[in-house]
């Protein structure tokens, strides 16, 4: 029901993705702010089919050498590659960083029991600056296998990047910096090395009062 409508291949589907900061005020009170968020817990036919973007338009925004986006696309199967344009919500102003936690939660589901490897590459001017690789095992729940990377700590590079971005006085300045900032996520089956999902993220700052927004595209080669 969801293929072509959201981020997912025949093998695996993204259920949730969020990057957030959370501060504990007292033992019972947490303030949570979402920088970006995708919730795909119940997609349906009713949602519009995804628009396409020619992957060649963004090759240079991501690593181009061995193992880069071009090579992944040429080796991978169609309908596995997606582009997300995020309008990140940076409208949070904190007085102090005490007790602050910066994290990323992502969740995938599949009909297959696998061990997955999730690589997240932060890129500046298309060059990888930091990579996190996480391995996740399946948990059988409600008739499908769930993979949940829960509250993975955000790397120092990203935390510093957010801090510096927030110090810029105008949104157009933030967008100018974000023009050269991207993230590439690749999910593979650890045991077979099959590429299951590849998501390229690009960013602007949200001007909405309703929090982070996004558009999802499928990446194709026309």
């Amino acid at each position: 029901a969801w293929q072509g409508h959201c981020i997912g291949s025949t093998k695996i589907r993204l259920v949730e993705f969020s990057a957030f900061m959370e501060q504990q005020r007292d033992p019972d009170t947490y303030n949570k702010h979402l920088f970006v968020h995708i919730g795909q817990s119940s997609p349906s036919y009713n949602e519009a089919l995804l628009e396409s973007v020619d992957i060649r338009q963004i090759y240079d925004k991501f690593p181009e050498k061995k193992g880069g986006l071009k090579e992944l696309f040429e080796k991978g199967t169609p309908n596995t590659f997606f582009l997300v344009k995020f309008w990140a919500d940076l409208s949070i102003h904190t007085q102090d960083e005490a007790g602050m936690f910066y994290g990323v939660t992502s969740q995938y589901e599949s009909a297959e029991n696998m061990t997955i490897t999730c690589s997240s590459k932060v890129c500046s001017f298309g060059k990888q600056v930091v990579e996190k690789v996480e391995t996740e095992y399946a948990r059988f729940e409600n008739g499908r296998f769930l993979y949940r990377i829960h509250r993975s700590p955000m790397c120092e590079y990203l935390i510093n990047f957010i801090h510096k971005l927030k110090q810029l006085p105008e949104k157009y300045m933030m967008n100018s910096v974000l023009e050269n900032f991207t993230i590439l996520q690749v999910v593979t089956n650890r045991d077979t090395q099959e590429l299951l999902l590849c998501v390229a993220y690009v960013f602007e700052v949200s001007t909405s009062e309703h929090g982070a927004q996004h558009h999802i595209y499928k990446l194709v080669k026309d």
Binding site: K85, G126, E179
Partner: peptide, 24 residues
């Protein structure tokens, strides 16, 4: 853009790429 990259605005991208969604 530095390093010779073509600005995103000059690339062939859907119009929606530049339109922040309105919630609801």
């Amino acid at each position: 853009a530095r390093h010779g990259q073509v600005p995103m605005r000059k690339r062939q991208l859907p119009a929606s790429f530049w339109e922040e969604p309105r919630p609801g």
